[in-house]
Simulated assay, not measured.
Amino acid sequence: MAAAAAAEQVEMAAGKGGGGRKKLILIALPLLLGGIGAGLWFSDILPSMFGVGAHPADEHGRTAAAEPPRPPAFFEMPEIIANLNATGRRPVYVKLRSKLEITRAEDAAAIQLALPRLLDLFQTHLREMRPEELRGSAGTQRLREELMARANIAVAPPAGSTQPAPRITDVLFTEILVQ
Rank of each mutant, 00 (worst) to 15 (best):
Met12His: 13
Ala13Asn: 10
Ala13Arg: 08
Ala13Lys: 10
Gly17Val: 10
Gly20Asp: 08
Lys23Tyr: 12
Ile25His: 14
Ile25Arg: 14
Ile27Trp: 12
Pro30Tyr: 13
Pro30Trp: 14
Leu31Tyr: 04
Ile36Tyr: 14
Ile36Met: 15
Gly37Ala: 14
Leu40Gly: 12
Trp41Ser: 02
Ser43Gly: 09
Asp44Val: 01
Ile45Val: 12
Leu46Arg: 01
Met49Pro: 04
Met49Phe: 13
Gly51Thr: 02
Val52His: 09
Val52Pro: 00
His55Lys: 07
Pro56Trp: 07
Pro56His: 09
Pro56Tyr: 04
Ala57Trp: 06
Ala57Val: 07
Glu59Leu: 13
Gly61Lys: 12
Ala64Cys: 05
Ala65Arg: 07
Glu67Tyr: 06
Pro68Asn: 15
Pro68Ser: 15
Pro71Ala: 13
Pro71Val: 08
Pro71Ile: 07
Pro72Phe: 14
Phe74His: 10
Phe75Thr: 00
Phe75Ser: 02
Glu76Asp: 12
Met77Trp: 01
Met77Ser: 02
Pro78Phe: 12
Ile80Leu: 09
Ile81Ala: 11
Ile81Cys: 07
Ala82Asp: 01
Ala82Cys: 04
Asn83Tyr: 12
Asn85Ile: 06
Thr87Val: 08
Thr87Cys: 08
Thr87Leu: 15
Thr87Glu: 14
Gly88Asp: 07
Gly88Leu: 03
Pro91Tyr: 13
Pro91Ser: 10
Val92Gln: 03
Tyr93Ser: 04
Val94Ala: 08
Lys99Phe: 08
Lys99Cys: 05
Leu100Cys: 04
Leu100Trp: 04
Glu101His: 03
Glu101Pro: 00
Arg104Asn: 11
Glu106Arg: 07
Asp107Phe: 05
Ala108Cys: 09
Ala109Gly: 03
Ala109Met: 05
Ala110Met: 07
Ile111Cys: 06
Leu115Ser: 01
Leu118Asp: 01
Leu118Ser: 00
Leu119Pro: 00
Leu119Ala: 05
Leu121Arg: 06
Gln123Arg: 11
His125Cys: 11
Leu126Gln: 04
Leu126Pro: 00
Leu126Phe: 06
Arg127Asp: 10
Glu128Lys: 15
Met129Gly: 01
Arg130Asn: 15
Arg130Cys: 11
Arg135Tyr: 05
Gly136Tyr: 12
Gly136Asp: 09
Ser137Trp: 07
Ala138Leu: 11
Gln141Tyr: 13
